[in-house]
Design a protein around this nucleic acid. Sequence first.
DNA 1: CTATTTTTGACCTTTATTGTACAAGTTTTA
DNA 2: TAAAACTTGTACAATAAAGGTCAAAAATAG
Lengths: 93, 93
Amino acid sequence: MLGAKLKELREINGYVQRQIAAELEVDTAYISKVENDEKPLSKSHLKKIAKLFKVAEKELVVIWLADKILNTIHDEENKQQALQLALNTLTKS
Amino acid sequence: MLGAKLKELREINGYVQRQIAAELEVDTAYISKVENDEKPLSKSHLKKIAKLFKVAEKELVVIWLADKILNTIHDEENKQQALQLALNTLTKS
DNA sequence: CTATTTTTGACCTTTATTGTACAAGTTTTA
DNA sequence: TAAAACTTGTACAATAAAGGTCAAAAATAG
């Protein structure tokens, strides 16, 4: 989910992966994997990207977190109920 | 959340921690921590407990998973939105 | 066709988490 | 108040996950 968003952002701004990699001082292979949701992105990198493309950090963080949640439960049977329960718990507290 | 449920189950069934510990072949200190949500419980242990107290495994798994989710995001700002997004994503797929 | 970009796979190091154990302290119960 | 039950702190090995790298292959653009 985050990967697609990041890629979209990159393309809209006319960047190639190499340029993002340079900004974050990492390998382009890593960027590729992040865009394909094969590797997580650290929060500090996420912040840099938000700044770079002038997009609200919160917007990206929400997606980043949702991805984390989904990863936590990805091969479970009752994810939906669990998510619902988690949301309820949070809402009532 | 799971800890309280487990404790309730244990007390309803008139068990002391030592007995649960024996069933799972672990230290009672561990059971104490699990009941106080200080340590996670492995899924296999969870299954054994469900069987022991004849409660639907699913019921416990849902709580166990919800706890996992909540832990993943516990000190984040926009958890609620993230959870909502995760739930939406899951629902539409 | 060739140059650039992107992807893939294998690997590596560091950090975090899990599952345990033990000892000692505290609380509860009889 | 003594015994049983429970909690707390510390430690540790094993495992998993994070956060990368490098080289080579595949895809795409010009």
